[in-house]
């Protein structure tokens, strides 16, 4: 019998610092030690994986690279608890463990021909990155790409350099915001939901995907509804405590669904039917 709890081994190929401070974020590029793992590890945009270290533990982290980026996986990890702090001690060449990929994914194929709008806050931009990269790598399949992305300060914006490059090339519209005014910042100042109302993207033929702190997600959805977006045009991706990744340990159970297995991606039509556990 296949043992879903035994992880694959991966090597840290590259570590890219994204933000500094007390809770720094690094993007880790991992390659499987055994290349044949790719025959079974087929990730789709929006899926997660259990990454960890034997002797420390595992954390469920969204895969922030797109399946169009072949031969490696990327994870943007904030130094937060026990496992992520241990991961932040690693150097290139070190070994990590991976299980997955887990969960459902963004229905990027169903979105062909549509305008894609991502609305992210803080580290919540990480689960949106595979959509952006997927759309860019299949640019002719999608009508347009717009990003609204905010963080507390400019230094807290992840993927800043690649998103700035995106703005210049590829015909994507990128809108950054920071919560409070700061020196040298020419962009929008304020919270993401307010910026959304300022920009007023048209709901016509558009899919909006949002990820960030729960409070931000709530107001973004409220504002999207005001702008005329329908339930089926809005998606988000959730987190919760997870231990197994396969719908057994019960930790991420919300309603009769498991975030690890039935999520993490939820269309608002389904999201609004979940019980109000996270009030």
């Amino acid at each position: 019998m296949n043992n879903p709890y035994i992880p694959y081994l991966a090597m840290v190929k590259d570590i890219r610092p994204e933000t500094a401070g007390e809770r720094p974020i690094n993007t880790y590029t991992l390659v499987f030690k055994d290349e044949s793992v790719w025959d079974v590890f087929k990730n789709r945009p929006g899926q997660c994986a259990m990454v960890g270290l034997l002797g420390v533990g595992e954390s469920m982290i969204s895969i922030c690279s797109s399946p169009t980026q072949k031969g490696y996986l990327q994870f943007s990890i904030m130094k937060m608890g026990k496992v992520t702090s241990a991961i932040h001690e690693l150097e290139a060449g070190d070994t990590m463990t991976i299980r997955g990929p887990y969960g459902n994914s963004f229905p990027v194929d169903d979105w062909k021909g549509k305008k894609i709008l991502t609305i992210g806050g803080g580290i919540g931009q990480a689960p949106l990155r595979p959509i952006i990269n997927y759309v860019l790598d299949n640019r002719k399949d999608y009508q347009s790409l717009q990003l609204i992305y905010g963080a507390r300060t400019a230094a807290d914006l992840v993927f800043l350099k690649e998103l700035q490059e995106l703005q210049q090339a590829n015909g994507a519209q990128v809108n950054f915001s920071v919560d409070r005014p700061e020196d040298g910042w020419n962009g929008y100042v304020g919270f993401v939901p307010a910026y959304l109302m300022d920009l007023k993207p048209s709901p016509e033929n558009t899919i909006a995907i949002t990820c960030g702190p729960p409070i931000m997600i709530r107001y973004v959805i409220e504002n999207l509804l005001k702008l005329g977006f329908k339930d089926e045009q809005m998606y988000t991706t959730l987190e919760n405590r997870m231990k197994c990744g396969i719908g057994k340990c019960g930790k991420c159970n919300v309603g009769n669904l498991y975030v690890c297995k039935d999520g993490p991606v939820f269309c608002y039509t389904r999201l609004k039917t979940l019980p109000p556990d996270m009030e």
């Binding site: 034997l54 197994c244 019960g250």
Partner: peptide, 8 residues
């Protein structure tokens, strides 16, 4: 009840 935690 079958919920479980995992620890190292």
């Amino acid at each position: 009840c079958y919920c479980f935690d995992v620890k190292d």
